[in-house]
Design a binder for these strands. Structure first.
Lengths: 365, 365
DNA sequence: CCGCTTTACTAAATCGGTTTATTGAATCAA
DNA sequence: TTGATTCAATAAACCGATTTAGTAAAGCGG
């Protein structure tokens, strides 16, 4: 395949051109000290102006390492990259990749199958994103025994997992709305990432957090709709909210993107945010501080998560065993998209938060 | 490297377990019709419960294809992913990757060297981003003769390039401010991507566009500062603007991210946007519609750019020659961050634009 | 029953490197 | 002078697949 009928220059070509063995050429690149001055220079020079480059796959095969880590993504690239969450995560991972001279392979499902994609991928280890414990891809990772770190998932006997305190963050978010006086709430849930799978572990934990606060306050059953983490999905979710007397006064979204899309749709429909509708997001993406009004949301340390995952994977690739760390802290960031519902006196707003992990902050400079 | 002293299961293991040759096992996966029913099933079954997976590097070596395309990025992942531009581009590329069962390798400089990274990368082709024509990495791509498509660069004799009408868009942006009555302008330029390199082709073309309009209007020499495409860089750029009588009333930024950061800094400093300072961005990222006020900016079709680049690369990988397409159209999107400068009557705002490619639009729904 | 084509399978070459074991020459201590 | 070391370089094995060129047995027409 390719119009390059000019066959690639191999190590053998360089060797014969320099009148030495393949070994010598290989040494010139990998163990220069094992060669004499003269030969070293001659080989290197010849290699350069012949335009020789070691074939990466051949190298990977004989060295048993490819210098690449795979990022296993259970969704289509076009949808998952619509959420800045992934950019942030990659920023964190990227720092460590650069530090360790690794490149990063994006591995989305091929032909609908993650397992197929895993086979293709020539990598030294995987970081997997949001995989359900019963995903077949996970089983495959265990079988082939490749170093793996799970992010936003559940630790398996073989692989460590990195998580944030999803439940605590969600609980703080719900408690915040309850403290403000809201009783009629809606939840915008994350969809399952893979067809006919249940909720992702992350979604489940956030659900649990919301419920914990709601149950404690004896709030009425929240209306729940599902929306992908995109603005358009969030806007669609707004349409799905009950109208009339069961109209929610507050919305708990499991992603900032859905929250922002929903806020836009609400505003287009003539609602005032937060007066007519309070909205709390999840993630605290950079853009959450820039919407109008700025979004109240649960911050999770996404970049740090990426860093940590990469660091742990690199340890595992070196053969060291590593244990799952404690979940990273989440924290509620109160901005302008939440207020007491219409009809509730504003003084309530000044109530001290009952949970200790809230933080009020404005737009970060 | 690795704690997997349990050596990987190879094709030979499966072969001997099934009592057949390696060839038969290979056929079972790749040419099933060349095997008898009975053997086929036995081999496949054994392979499965032995947990056999063909080694990707070995496969890549003998098939001379890796099923991967590389995205060559001339900057650190942590900086380039701070700009949603890249996410958009990847969304476009991703669509075609999925269509053709390809995975995508991110290839940033390793140890400061893109060339080194190119060597490592086991890919069937490259899409390169914003490379200067004199970048050594480009020369290397030509030497090893790997299919390549250049994005935001200049077409080389060997490789086609995909570009947008950078100059036209910039000219429209500048003309817009001039039409509003601004005469004292500042330009926020994109920095060179690689150390001690000149401006990127993209930056140069946008400069040319700004200048064309400014010269035509005999506007005074614009003050120029450089800022990376991040909000913090944009905020820093604001500090670099002249104060006092040479204070610009309008800013032309070469990226939305810098524009948004600058806008925030200006607002924190007590300026009203657009009344005290008009700002025009470049890119029209989704978030540009969500800032307050919404950002006037030059839209370029980023996702389409990614799609097109991937489509062309795939053609090249199939051996077909492809020519550089015409630059894609850019269009000015007027939102709320621009208005006549203080002291100029507002009627000027109603002036018809002198260039034909402007568009007025609100926040997109 | 004989030559001819299929069918089902295999031995060996190949892809392009790295790595181990070995060799021949030069250097050195005794 | 001799035996032990070091140095520079190489031959050959190896990594784990695919692919080419065959081969033995079965099927078939005449």
């Amino acid at each position: 395949m390719g119009l390059d009928w000019v066959s690639r220059i191999t190590i053998a070509d360089v060797a014969s051109a320099a009148g030495v063995s393949k070994t010598a050429v290989s040494f010139a690149f990998n163990n220069p000290e094992k060669l004499g001055q003269a030969t070293l220079e001659r080989v290197l020079g010849l290699a350069h102006n012949l335009g020789y480059t070691p074939h990466p796959a051949a190298r990977a095969l004989s060295q048993r390492r490819s210098g690449t880590i795979g990022l296993l993504i259970p969704q289509r690239l076009s949808v998952v990259f619509a959420n800045p969450f992934l950019s942030e995560l990659i920023q964190g991972m990227g720092e460590l990749c650069e530090e360790h001279d690794l490149t990063m392979l994006l591995v989305p499902p091929l032909d609908g199958s993650l397992e197929g994609a895993i086979r293709q991928a020539s990598v030294d280890g995987f970081i997997s994103l949001g995989l359900s414990p019963d995903d077949r891809a996970l089983a495959m990772l265990e079988r082939i025994g490749i170093p793996t770190v799970l992010v936003d998932s559940e630790a398996s006997p073989m692989h460590p997992a990195i998580n944030v305190d999803d439940e605590g963050g969600a609980e703080a978010a719900a408690q915040h709305l309850l403290d403000l006086g809201h009783r009629e709430l809606a939840i915008i849930a994350l969809p399952p990432t893979r067809a006919h799978a249940g909720h992702t572990p992350t979604a489940a934990r956030r659900f649990a957090g919301y419920r914990a606060a709601l149950d404690r306050a004896h709030a009425s059953e929240p209306h729940t709709v599902t929306a992908g983490a995109t603005m358009t999905a969030g806007a669609r979710a707004f349409e799905g909210l009950p109208k009339g007397k069961r109209r929610p006064t507050g919305v708990l979204a499991m992603s900032d993107m859905a929250a922002i899309g929903l806020m836009a749709a609400a505003q287009s429909a003539g609602l005032k945010v937060p007066d007519d509708l309070s909205i709390v997001g999840y993630d605290d993406l950079p853009m959450a501080a820039w919407t109008n009004p700025a979004l109240t949301t649960v911050r999770q340390p996404i970049v740090e998560k990426g860093r940590l995952a990469a660091r742990m994977l690199i340890q595992r690739m070196k053969g060291r065993a590593v244990a799952s760390p404690l979940p990273l802290a989440t924290i509620l960031v109160v901005r302008g998209s939440t207020s007491p519902p219409a009809g509730v006196p504003h003084e309530l707003k000044a109530n001290p938060p009952s949970s200790g992990e809230k933080e009020v902050t404005g737009r970060s400079s």
